[in-house]
């Protein structure tokens, strides 16, 4: 594979997709709206929980904002497949697949656009968090955003993979609903899983997001060098590699 050519093609497609996104700015705002509402309307409830057994004695915002960040990935990056289904229907995907463009570039152009959008949303959300009372070391915030952005690469790739498999909104939407909600609840985004009964805690360890949420929380309280952060980073990295590989393979396959 010619890396330079692939990079050039990825950049071309990235620019095109980003321009399309910027054409409808509302999309970026709506994507961040749901996590923002959780922050504004649910977060304040948690400030009363500090000191409750299992919640830990950290500041409630240090526990909650990482959860909302990962939730943003689920609510924003998981839904990017809808755009691809629209492109499939308009024939755009076939038109691009007939060109000699590298199949990796076809996926990465999209995914990097989504990641850019998500990074902007994450910063917006953090700013709102700080306004609500979040206090965390700058390095911790940076590690947190980096993890979340990386996670978005994996989640967006999986979303495109599912979109290419289902090919229609009425297949994609229910599937997404069935996957996103349990993943969100099991990850301990809203309340830390350390509060959970044993069986739930065990179950949550089978979902990747649990590790990422815990890692971002650890970063926000300043435990950068902890096992928790390393675990979260490792899980995210594996997710990214596997999902990008699967997504590319799907684009390579004949009837993608």
């Amino acid at each position: 594979m010619d890396v330079r050519r692939t990079a050039r093609e990825t950049r071309l497609l990235y620019t095109r997709h980003l321009r399309t996104t910027l054409r409808s700015k509302v999309g970026v705002v709506f994507g961040v709206l749901q996590p923002l509402l959780y922050l504004l309307l649910f977060g304040p409830l948690l400030t009363r929980l500090s000191g409750v057994r299992g919640f830990g004695d950290h500041d409630a915002w240090q526990v909650f904002v990482p959860g909302v960040l990962v939730q943003l990935v689920l609510f924003s990056a998981a839904y990017v497949g809808f755009g691809l289904i629209a492109d499939l229907r308009a024939g755009v995907v076939d038109r691009l697949r007939v060109t000699p463009v590298s199949r990796v570039a076809l996926l990465l152009g999209l995914v990097l656009r989504d990641t850019t959008v998500l990074a902007v949303q994450a910063v917006l959300l953090l700013a709102a968090g700080v306004a609500m009372g979040l206090r965390a070391p700058a390095a911790g915030l940076a590690v947190g955003v980096a993890l979340v952005v990386l996670l978005a690469v994996g989640v967006a790739s999986l979303s495109y993979l599912l979109a290419l498999v289902t090919r229609r909104e009425d297949g994609f939407a229910p599937l997404l609903g069935a996957v996103v909600l349990p993943l969100m609840l099991l990850s301990g985004m809203l309340l830390p899983m350390s509060m959970a009964p044993g069986w739930l805690d065990v179950a949550s360890h089978f979902t990747p997001f649990r590790y990422v949420v815990d890692a971002v929380r650890a970063a926000f309280v300043g435990d950068y060098a902890s096992v928790t952060v390393a675990e979260g980073a490792a899980v995210t990295a594996v997710l990214v590699v596997v999902s990008v590989a699967l997504g590319t393979r799907r684009f390579l396959r004949e009837n993608a």
Binding site: T20, R23, S24, D87, R89, A90, G91, V92, D94, R95, L96, V98, T99, P100
Partner: peptide
């Protein structure tokens, strides 16, 4: 791919 052009039944231009 380098040597052919293809125009699909429904076209291939993005609407927006």
């Amino acid at each position: 791919r380098r040597r052919i052009g293809y125009v699909a039944q429904g076209g291939g231009a993005a609407p927006a």
